[in-house]
Design a protein around this nucleic acid. Structure first.
Length: 442
RNA sequence: UCCCCGGUAGCUCAGCUGGUUAGAGCGGGUGGCUGUUAACCACUAGGUCGGGGGUUCGAAUCCCUCCCGGGGAGCCA
């Protein structure tokens, strides 16, 4: 018997097992806010209706004690949620002593140190339910479109996009290994075997970033498909994001409402999204006077017109997105600022066939993807230009040696997507146990 | 790595232009109340003012330094 099914049992006597979330004592009455993971329900203990012992238990029970409650379900407009339990029996399974998180305000440091308990709070539970919904929607969408889930390794022998942001570890007698920062290269190999695939798992970035958009360990889904072009992958990214948002709206409306999310704005997330090329975006930034902070050689900070060739930072992306009420794909970035494996645009060799999807409402970059370089010589050249160890990429070059085909893929960050959809300020609340620059516990 | 802000009771904070014995609310405890929604009322316990050093007759308060945390930049999902 769970709280979420309570409305079906009006008038009946039920037994619930769970935890005491809050207690109010009022003479001969005790109000207990009870939770069992599926919902919260008020239990009312009235002294004349129960034994001396049961009343004393209810009166003295503490926050987060585990309990078994038996009573009659009734509709009650004064109760949060509309239903309450008129308690007949009340047992304490385990009495909690000095539970640290109270219904009042706490600071982020305190809450993160108690993350193992913080997740019991209704708000955190709601966010984690939405996260589960986002993951379910992704699998639903990809499985339904013929993509095969194929897991990439987490321990890898080399970097995917450069060595500056890798977590390094010793791998027995074989030297150094690294925690994967992307499953993409393996996804490409899998796509050559299975056609349409996706990897889904944790990725690791040893970036020393301290913002509300960054984690050192985060989850990413990376679809990769043989014979897909940049246009195909952009269409698919739009389809997928539309599906995720509408799925969560359908299945987790209650949680989103509880979190205070503006649902009308999410309803609008329907195809087609907006698109612009990098060059058009630079043009827009210049027209709207969005400058770039630059440091001069003598250390002074100056503002300059946004130069073509520079990568966008968060301030530029945010400025760009203020005009949009749904996501926008920016495509065809300068080759210099993007990864070695991205294919050059045959119509303009200064740019690569890459795309990022930016979410509105300060959601930021949620997707990065590209058409991959499928020519053996061109790819080898890129690896050398990026000063990457050629021997580590022999297997990857093999994919261009034995039946190379055009192919494309993208990665979608789970936590950033959850942050945008729920509207929570900080990414640390979108994963059960966040890993950040200065925080690895609990 | 760089820039800005902060660290005082279990929690959230006030006090900080130096000056008696360091405060409030919440939480805990005790008592009161049959409708509470972060209840309310009364009483009560609870502090090496982040660590170290310095200035001073006197430091939570000023200076130096280290540690810890928050926000942002860069980089990125």
């Amino acid at each position: 018997m769970w709280v979420e099914h309570l409305s079906r049992y009006v008038g009946e006597t039920v037994t619930l097992r769970g935890w005491v979330y809050h207690r109010t004592r009022k003479g001969k009455l005790v109000f207990l806010r009870f939770r069992d993971g599926t919902g919260i329900c008020q239990c009312v203990v009235f002294k004349p209706n129960v034994s001396e012992e049961v009343f004393e238990h209810a009166r003295s029970v503490t926050q987060e004690s585990s309990v078994v409650v038996t009573g009659t379900v009734r509709e009650e407009s004064r109760a949060p949620g509309g239903y309450e339990i008129d308690v007949q029996d009340f047992q304490i399974l385990h009495l909690a002593v000095d539970y640290p998180i109270t219904p009042k305000e706490h600071g982020p440091d305190f809450l993160l140190k108690h993350r193992h308990l913080w997740i019991r709070s209704p708000r955190q539970a709601a966010i984690l339910r939405v996260r589960a919904g986002v993951e379910r929607a992704i699998r639903d969408f990809l499985d339904g479109n013929g993509f095969i889930e194929a897991d990439a390794p987490i321990l890898t022998p080399s970097a995917c996009e450069g060595t500056s942001t890798l977590f390094e570890l010793e791998y027995f007698d074989l030297g150094n290994a690294y925690l994967s920062q992307s499953g993409q290269l393996y996804a490409e190999a899998l796509a050559m075997a299975l056609g349409k695939v996706y990897t889904f798992g944790p990725t690791f970035r040893a970036e020393r970033s301290k913002t509300r958009r960054h984690l050192t360990e985060f989850w990413m889904v990376e679809p990769e498909a043989a014979f897909f072009t940049l246009d195909d992958i952009m269409d698919m990214a739009e389809d997928m994001v539309e599906y995720i948002v509408q799925y969560v709206l359908r299945h987790h409306r209650r949680e989103l409402e509880f979190l205070g999310r503006n649902l009308e704005k999410l309803e609008k997330v329907r195809r087609p999204f907006y698109r612009m090329s990098y060059t058009e975006a630079v043009e827009w930034l210049r027209q709207h006077d969005v400058k770039l902070h630059r440091k001069t050689p003598d250390g002074k900070e100056i503002l300059v017109d946004f130069p073509w060739g520079e990568d966008f930072g968060a301030p530029q992306e945010e400025a760009l997105m203020e005009q949009f009420d749904k996501p926008c794909i920016v495509h065809r970035y300068p080759a210099e600022v993007k990864a070695f494996y991205m294919k050059r645009d045959p119509e303009d060799p200064r740019v690569v066939l890459a795309m990022d999807m930016l979410a509105p409402e300060k959601g930021g970059e949620i997707i990065g993807g590209s058409q991959r370089e499928d020519d053996y010589e061109a790819l080898k050249q890129r690896i050398l230009e990026h000063n990457l160890p050629l021997e580590d990429f022999q297997w990857y070059l093999d994919l261009r040696k034995y039946g190379s085909v055009p192919h494309s893929g993208f990665g979608l960050g789970i936590e950033r997507t959850v942050r945008w959809i729920t509207g929570v300020e900080h990414i640390r609340e979108t994963i059960p146990f966040p890993r950040m620059l200065y925080r690895i516990e609990p």
